[in-house]
Write a protein that binds this DNA or RNA. Structure first.
Lengths: 196, 196
DNA sequence: TAGCCCATGTAATTGGTTACATGATTGA
DNA sequence: TCAATCATGTAACCAATTACATGGGCTA
């Protein structure tokens, strides 16, 4: 099951531009980290596989190679890969399939909250307060990212889709800030309404 | 890292009532599946460990054992575990720690959406429509669960916390239904606004 | 007595992170 | 020339699911 989504993540990234393994890591870290991550331990082996399958191919290293090549370096220092037509086809087929539902599995904060009565007074409130701070911070980074994207890639054909993913994050974090505020009120209310 | 959250999930479940491994599986499937899951492959080994550490203990099987015991069965058919005071302490300490931020890792729908231009026309809209249906369905199950909880466990001291987790799901799904509606409108707009 | 659920468990595999080893290049 | 960063890779480990093996008990 689940069919190795790293393959598609890498293929997708390479549609944006040709990249090395190192570039890919940064792409995931800096570009899409709020909904996707990949580690070297995944990236390099997958690149080798994809190359063997003909879904990506070596693309000469545009930059940096100059000096090295002038010095007669045997091989270009960076291995830069580009997606091939076959790779594009594979990616397109995957994109046409429905995404896994995956209703937010393993949300640690909810696991803690579910049992929070065992955590003594204040435990639940602390969890909620932390969460609120996290989502407020996320909203700030989303806003910054959005501004940067609109400025730097105004004409990029992928931009509308990038903005949609950001909007997803914004909707979720806004909702969770609101949930935190609700929850704080609930938790502040007397647990057992004192009988008179 | 990450310190084996299954241990705490199991300990937490056992604060609700003593259970067997089989019961635990059903607890996760039926009770908290929208934010947590555990498989037998995790549950049974962890139970053994927890028992060895004295964090849970055998609790006699209340039900079913009757006939078997009458027939002189060597051991009770089910192994039912209860949390021990030591177990409660461990759980309480864990609950006092902040939860991992874990900002929604690996959301497949966003990965697809990010690259959706490669998926041909309609691919993105299909993803969004599916997602809308999923979250609308979730909202219905949340409402049903909430009604059932309020009816069956009105006096349960954990009820407020259970409702908070439900509310979390409701906030998120409501926000995502709204996001889907936004996204559909965006996608319906002409991708390249025809110049006049 | 067949078929279904209850129940426990494990082995194989997958998916993924972490930590490390190694070395080149660049810029202060 | 030193430190930081660029760059590739792998081995060890961890978390988790899947699929199976095994068998008791219940009921139609």
């Amino acid at each position: 099951m689940s069919e190795n989504r790293t393959r598609y993540a890498v293929l997708g990234a390479l549609t944006v531009e040709p990249m090395s393994g190192y570039d890919l890591k940064r792409f995931f870290e800096q570009g899409v980290s709020f909904f996707w991550a990949e580690s070297y331990g995944q990236i390099y082996p997958i690149l080798k596989q994809l190359k063997a399958e003909g879904l990506v191919a070596d693309a000469g290293d545009e930059r940096g190679g100059a000096k090295a090549r002038a010095a007669g370096a045997a091989h270009p220092r960076r291995a830069v890969y580009a997606i091939t037509p076959a790779g594009r086809e594979v990616l397109t087929r995957w994109l046409a399939e429905p995404a896994e539902p995956q209703a937010g599995r393993r949300l640690e904060i909810l696991l803690k909250l579910f049992f929070a009565r065992q955590g003594g007074p204040g435990a639940a409130a602390r969890l909620v307060a932390d969460s609120r701070a996290q989502h407020a911070a996320l909203l700030a980074t989303y806003a910054a990212t959005e501004a940067r994207l609109r400025a730097d890639h105004a004409a990029h054909p992928d931009l509308p889709f990038w903005l949609l993913t950001l909007s997803y994050g914004q909707h979720v974090s806004q909702a969770l800030v609101a949930w935190c505020d609700d929850a704080m009120r609930t938790l502040a209310a007397p647990p057992t309404p004192a009988p008179r």
